[in-house]
Simulated assay, not measured.
Amino acid sequence: MTALPLTAQPADRILKTLRTYRRDAVLTVELHVPERGNAVTDAMLDDLLTVLDGQDPAVQVLVLTAAGADFCLGGDRGEYDGSLAEDPTGGGIRASAAKARRVCDALVANPAVTIARVHGKAIGAGLALALACDLRVGADTATFRLPELALGLPTAWGGLLPRLISEAGAARVRELILTGRAFTAYEAESLSILQKAVPEGALDEAVTAWAKPVLRRPAAALRVTKTLLNSLSAGTRLADAAALDPELMAAVAAELYRGRRP
């Protein structure tokens, strides 16, 4: 990833899985567990909630990026299996899924314009985090995948499914979920999962090109416009069953775990 000329941003609570940087009204939040492919854990969800809930109102642009070779390889399977071993009824999965929904909702409702800066692989929960952002740019070498069905799980994390259908269309999303195949940045762009695919070396330039005009907009008008866009987008969904994501994930995971036990 190209180094960003930003100032490290202190946090009230020590962040275990993130790095934050601030430059004027731009806050950069970097997923920072590169040795694990920035896999989403409960600790990462807690860190994201700490940053988003405590965000300075003066921030007008939030950039979500990641350290290392990949944006995010999805949920941490080791933590997932450990949670089921501890509570075979899926209670831990339910709590984690509820937290994931809070994180994605906080990104969607963020008063700042949120920009996902994607490189490498964005899988499952990683794709969900990017999709919760207003604007999404990806390296032309980035790849995406929704592997949940192959893992025996529903596509029910962070409100991903209704958001994905709203952006990309039901027919194409159905094919991506049922096959679980990887797809390229250019296909993601054609589906509006990305608004732009660029060479990896041009990612920062693309983010800056979006951020500059946003920073010139009056803050109050920006907040109201975001609220209107979110409301109108939600209004196009005949039903949003994402509120059931934690229950669906817990129920299916518990059944799968019972089937694996001797």
Rank of each mutant, 00 (worst) to 15 (best):
R94G: 00
R174I: 06
Q55K: 12
L31I: 02
A170I: 13
G201P: 00
L15S: 01
D24R: 07
G124T: 05
L107R: 01
C72W: 11
A95T: 06
R260S: 13
A221W: 09
P34D: 13
P162K: 14
L49V: 05
A206L: 01
R145K: 14
Y80M: 01
D42M: 08
A251C: 03
Q195K: 06
G37D: 10
L149P: 00
H119M: 06
R102G: 00
V252A: 10
L6T: 03
G68F: 12
T2W: 09
V26H: 00
H32A: 15
I165L: 06
G138Q: 13
T236N: 04
L146P: 02
L49K: 05
A168M: 11
A243G: 11
D140P: 02
T141Y: 11
A239R: 06
P154R: 09
G235M: 08
A100D: 03
R94A: 09
P199R: 05
G235Y: 12
A150R: 14
L191A: 06
D56H: 09
A116K: 05
A250S: 05
P246E: 14
V61I: 09
G91W: 12
I115R: 00
A242C: 07
A98W: 05
A11E: 10
H32D: 15
F144W: 14
A250T: 02
I115T: 02
M1T: 06
A130S: 13
L256F: 12
D24H: 07
A100F: 08
G75I: 14
L107E: 04
L229F: 14
G75M: 13
N230H: 15
V40D: 06
T41G: 02
A220H: 10
G74Y: 04
A106F: 12
T227K: 11
P154C: 11
A109M: 09
Y257V: 03
G78I: 01
L244V: 03
L228S: 04
A219E: 09
L135G: 04
A156G: 09
A243S: 08
A106R: 14
V137D: 07
E79Q: 10
V59F: 10
V33G: 05
V61R: 08
D134M: 11
S231I: 01
G82V: 06
